[in-house]
Design a protein around this nucleic acid. Structure first.
Lengths: 147, 147
DNA sequence: ACAGGGATGTCAACGTGTTGACATGACGGG
DNA sequence: CCCGTCATGTCAACACGTTGACATCCCTGT
């Protein structure tokens, strides 16, 4: 009996996430989840908590809880929206942009290397398969796009 | 600028996991993590807590906490190993085997369908890429194999 | 003007993972 | 035989997500 492809996919991702997490912790002092959240925030500066939650694929409550520590650590600023009494404007600081840029480039480089480690790996082909799969699953073409 | 392939991979998996989780909750009354844990237990009946943790890719403590509720719900039995004063023998009940078999088949069927929904999807090709990737990452060929 | 419904952010309670510490059983070398 | 060391399971504390409830604010229809 063969392992289902979906399970194999799962294991591969878990391994890649673990690797990325260790790299980010060691070299940038943040966890993968934090980096990911900051990357979303950097992609939509001035967004409110709800948009951030959607973009990061988590609940409003989770995003709301994540923000205060990131403000304390100098990665974000959170100010009340002058045009809306309840809405917050979340703006990344230069430190956040620097982290996202550096760590993002680092991760991309690492995983690019990964795809060249074996001649049987064909990144463009894999990418096409994944994009089609994303389409079938109803995922947006780019992460966290706001309509 | 293009989204890194590794990020795309991540998003695809998260979507598939979410889908699987909803299906399992609705039709089998367990979460994906629980199913996954029971699948590991079913693959190594009589294993101790440490082996189970390794097989399921979690810490000993997490496995240890997971077991009592599963015993209470009639999915597992946990008895002291007669040959070792501290070791426990974790044995799945028929109910666990039935769940793993039924839910596993269901998931596999769903995701097989998924791979036929678009003519551009080539499951064998995708699978070869993933297996090579797993090899490069140093993953075992089959999940939870004990040396 | 204002009543009602939706949007927004936060809270409490909970689920489930982690790490580090710990008591205790197994085991091998002196 | 006994002592040091490792293996084993559990506990406490924490991290970080979820859901459901909630107060508050905005906006629209009347």
């Amino acid at each position: 009996m063969n392992e289902p492809t979906s399970f194999l996919l799962h294991r591969v991702i878990v391994a890649m996430d673990t690797y990325a997490d260790q790299l980010l912790r060691r070299d940038h002092g943040v966890t993968f989840a934090t980096f990911s959240f900051l990357a979303v925030a950097a992609a939509m500066p001035g967004a409110d908590v709800t948009s951030l939650a959607q973009g990061a694929g988590m609940s409003k409550a989770a995003a709301s809880k994540r923000i205060p520590p990131l403000v304390r650590d100098g990665y974000l600023t959170a100010e009340p929206d002058p045009h809306h009494g309840r809405r917050l404007r979340i703006v990344p600081t230069p430190r956040a942009y620097a982290l996202v840029q550096a760590a993002g480039a680092r991760l991309e480089a690492e995983f690019s290397d990964l795809f060249t480690l074996d001649a049987r790996l064909d990144e463009p082909a894999l990418r096409r398969q994944l994009e089609t799969l994303a389409g079938v699953l109803g995922l947006p073409a780019t992460p966290g796009d706001q309509p």
